[in-house]
Design a protein around this nucleic acid. Sequence first.
DNA 1: TCTGTTTTGATCGATTACGAGCGATTTTCG
DNA 2: CGAAAATCGCTCGTAATCGATCAAAACAGA
Lengths: 268, 268
Amino acid sequence: MLGEARRAAIVAMLRATGSVTVAELQAELGISPMTARRDLAELSRRGIAHRTHGGAVIPSIAAHEDSFAHRLEAETDAKRLLADAAVELLSPRDAVFVDSSTTGYFVARRMLELGIELTLITNSLPVMQLVASHAGPNVELVSVGGLMRRLTQSFVGPHAIRTIQGHFADRAFVSVKALTETGMMADVDPLEAEVKRSMIAQANDPVLLIDRSKLSARGLNAIGPVSDVSLVIAHGVQASDLRGVRRLDVAVRVVADKMTGLAGAGPG
Amino acid sequence: MLGEARRAAIVAMLRATGSVTVAELQAELGISPMTARRDLAELSRRGIAHRTHGGAVIPSIAAHEDSFAHRLEAETDAKRLLADAAVELLSPRDAVFVDSSTTGYFVARRMLELGIELTLITNSLPVMQLVASHAGPNVELVSVGGLMRRLTQSFVGPHAIRTIQGHFADRAFVSVKALTETGMMADVDPLEAEVKRSMIAQANDPVLLIDRSKLSARGLNAIGPVSDVSLVIAHGVQASDLRGVRRLDVAVRVVADKMTGLAGAGPG
DNA sequence: TCTGTTTTGATCGATTACGAGCGATTTTCG
DNA sequence: CGAAAATCGCTCGTAATCGATCAAAACAGA
């Protein structure tokens, strides 16, 4: 039996029941456990199967990879540091845009912890929940309306844009999926990209927050040149990663881990 | 059984009933209590489940226990009956306004329980949370934006109005604080009243849901005559209470408690 | 046939999942 | 409020699984 045909059979079994075990493959296809593992590894690499101990499941079962809850777990320290740096910029009674990134969620949480009096404008449902349940009475919340995106728990679309354009804010805290070498900000979802673009446009001092994980991903939908923001706060990136930012002469602040040195490279 | 498949099964049980216990998992899946606990801990880490003593619940239910439970506990039976009657009016693919009343919350929950495919347009944060965590993929959610009112966990103001006016819906389910003898609907908060008025205006078949508790209160801010809605569904009211409604010749359906005979037919 | 490449199978130390024991904690109930 | 019951989760032993590595087999081209 040809390798590719065998893998196709494995895919068929996966689709049928939602999962396969190595032992099943051994019995069903007459192959050794090692070959079964190699095939599953290959299918996992292609994104067709999600490898687990003893076998594999179809990705949709374990697809929470990109869900909000799962993203919260990744790079938590970095986001906390970014949030700390971000809230330092705030003054009482500021109006602030916060987007639907997990980094934005951390920023909002830090704001509430410090009890700063301000107005929050967001398209993120988790941020709304946060404010509704944890905020003191001196925090105003404005929700951007629109259609809900399940994956990111956020609201997008024309109504969201119109509401954003109806507000002027002192600052915006935005995080993007990708930052190219030419200094373009981009995101995977076009509607989400539009929201971020509008927030940046409607804020006096838009701030871009990025950590290392953001630089590898490729975003397809351009948001705009990084020169649209007045400050970039970064964590865990190398100088070469910020080439595009430097080229456009945007102020950068790099936050460092706790004890290892201090923040504040570059103008800013 | 594969670990991930087992956890997927747990998630399915959670979604079906809203909660699971360790003992249930032990019986249903044939696993040890320790494994059940480990799975629940993992799902909790992913944000899919909220751990409790003896088992776990869906996160949003836990969240509501703090903020919303108090109002929800009042007149629960009445609201459930109203909700049952309300969802009977729905057809697949309807677009529906739901306001920020607790009755509206019950209606939304009943819709999701029945898995009806529809588009929900709401200004209620709890309803949004409900849809975000409980709804299947065939439910669309549109959030009305605007300023958050802490007391009712809802969004109001000009941006909310504009978003509502940008939509036409098949139905609207609205509950009001007061219904006068002359047939005027009213509410205590002017902004909230404005939202309800807009929802009624933008729906083909607006429906007013009222229980006895609504008739005693006095609302200061007029919403409009009850003749603006095409149907009133009431519970626990006496004929005299509905004088204003009858005067304006609006269709009324009175839902009765379980076994005591129904007005307007239909299963209660 | 010979030789080089690719695929498959077997070995084995390391890793991981699972279940049982048990003291600590929480809940229930008198 | 105190005691009993249930639940929790830490720890450890066992069993299954994993994947790196190397050898055998299948295959291709000269």
